[in-house]
Design a protein around this nucleic acid. Structure first.
Lengths: 204, 204
DNA sequence: TTATTAATTGATACAGTGTCAATAAAATAG
DNA sequence: CTATTTTATTGACACTGTATCAATTAATAA
């Protein structure tokens, strides 16, 4: 079966990292290296706009400089590998909008309308090639939607506290933001993340 | 090669229909019937959320009740068929926003901000299943973007004439509208096209 | 009716998937 | 350091789907 960008990730669980796992029995270093190689291989292929319809297990194995059979030792199929990459990158994304420590929350700077937007956009810009490809996938988009919804909900709370309210439903704000980000990536991030954040906030 | 939703249409030419062609030598009715069958088959498969990764020439031929080899008599591959479907549906879409006759243009009702939006959204809602699938494709989205840009440009002209202006760039308005429409379709068009148009206009 | 064109059928070479057993290479425990 | 365990490689396999053919059957147009 060839690759069709359906790389779905079923569970949305940011609380648990994929890098260490809670059990502490040592993982064979060959496994760590092999998995890293396959992940880097697929990402690099996606980032250089490698024709998705021609993306095969063989092409990924070639790029990883590993055997094709080794791929099946670690992943069910290409989607399976993709899911794991998605889980990692979305955890990173989520971290950009969540306050790291008490200090930041108490200063209040995280609660200003739009404040979480800039690190969020910067993170996307840093992985522009990857997000540009992945946002074509429905399930990935749904998960990004959920993260943006958190940002917008926090804005709303903040505005409500000041007796103000949004003109339109939160879903409309989130989906339009996602539309803008998608377009921004498709055009090769022509504007700075600051300018884009400004435009988005002006819209709201 | 399996289907990967890359159904690209290269040329954006709404001026020329695909149904008749300018030359008038009769087309064999078997060809017309066969092509219609294949188009209806693919559309029906897409609309019922048939797993895109399992979409094969055989499955389309089965649905069309035609032989697989017959498919290759008319189309290069699945993308080729898809392109032809896209050209037709986008021509329909374009017609929803272009005034049909002088009467409508002179009355001015087509020039009111947002006026073209409702028939546009109604058209999408009528073909919700198809658009929901097709908007996953980058090139298709670009062509829809171009159509929305025409709508927004007309709004802008109109506002300018009244000495007003948009707060944000046209591209931002268009991409956010496309984002909203995409979300609307993904959620099964939960709101009416009138309500959605209202929300979009409020945002602008 | 006859000539023409389209559709079907069965066959083919090819590419990619996913699995397996046998073997080579690397890592860890003793 | 050696023996044992685990991982990676290799070549083979059945399977599915693609894209193309030649030969045949069916429908259309004159």
């Amino acid at each position: 079966m060839t690759f069709d960008i359906r790389f779905v990730a079923k569970v949305m669980d940011y609380s648990q990292g994929t890098d260490k796992m809670s059990n502490n029995k040592k993982v064979d270093p060959r496994i760590i290296r092999t998995k890293r190689m396959f992940k880097e291989a697929l990402i690099s292929l996606l980032e250089e706009n490698y024709d998705k319809s021609k993306l095969t297990v063989q092409s990924i194995a070639d790029r990883a400089e590993l055997n094709r059979a080794t791929f099946y030792l670690h992943y069910r199929d290409i989607e399976d590998l993709m899911e794991q990459i998605i889980d990692e990158i979305l955890m990173e994304m989520y971290n950009t909008i969540s306050p790291m420590n008490e200090e930041q929350t108490s200063t209040g700077k995280w609660n200003r309308t739009g404040s979480r937007l800039i690190p969020f956009l910067e993170h996307i810009q840093q992985h522009a090639g990857l997000y540009n490809v992945m946002l074509e996938n429905r399930d990935f988009r749904k998960r990004v939607f959920a993260i943006i919804l958190e940002i917008v909900s926090l804005w709303e709370e903040n505005r409500k506290a000041r007796g103000r309210t949004f003109k339109v439903a939160n879903e409309i704000i989130v989906s339009s933001t996602l539309g803008i980000v998608t377009w921004w990536l498709e055009e090769g991030t022509p504007y700075s993340s600051n300018y884009l954040a400004d435009q988005i906030i002006k819209l709201v």
